[in-house]
Design a binder for these strands. Sequence first.
DNA 1: GCGACAG
DNA 2: ATCTTGTCGC
Length: 264
Amino acid sequence: MTPLPPGVGAVQAPSVPLGAGAEERRGWPATEREALAEQARLRPLAVLDAEGPARPRTLAGLDVAYAGTGGPEDRVAGAVVVLDAATLDVIEEATAIGPARFPYIPGLFAFREVPVLLAALAKLTAPPDLLLCDGHGLAHPRRFGLACHLGVLTGLPTAGVAKTRLIGTHAEPGPERGDHADLVDEADGAVLGRVLRTQRGVKPVYLSVGHRVGLDDLTRHVLAAAPRYRLPETTRRADRLCRDALDADTRNADTRNADTEARA
DNA sequence: GCGACAG
DNA sequence: ATCTTGTCGC
């Protein structure tokens, strides 16, 4: 099974203690309908009405890079970078590589990225105070995006920081850094998240709650983590790291093939 | 039926 | 996400 990281699993009990075992017995979802069923099973376990964390000591950025073009057999590299929330200095990094276990389907994004991200998280020596995922949390067709999924499986506070919209409508945020607008579900008027301008004159980013976090606190932390660029340092560092990990893995594979070729 | 559609 | 050259701007 996928052992949760020393800190990630031990310090904070996962919200779904039997989940890992169940998945092991039943296998990772292989079809869209199975994935939808799994989402429905985990959805009620997400804590969406929390506040905080008020003063996280660390912020973690998570991201993945792919080798293929979206198929179920692509190689996937995941990375997690833990930063000091106050200085944004890197405290710890971890990566993991594996085959994609699911095709890319909008709304079922987590089934493609979660395995490798959990593997990377398991390598950390301590649980981060807040996980910032590349994608959405609540701002999802069934209110259970990647951030929610990762939050439920790890028990850690999580949130989504996406570069583009998946669902919801919103007014154009003001032009200044910090200006924001609600991301709303037209159907019922529910606030799904927040569209935040992190720098003057750049496209806004989409924030949404994942698990055990508040939107106001999240907004503060993301703004603090993005002192210079559009994307927070958590996302930028993780993006760089997983890409490097994928490239390194590709070079190793090429080298092995070349050796085999030479020996033949 | 016609778009929209995280990464 | 990934495939890709040059190009406009600080």
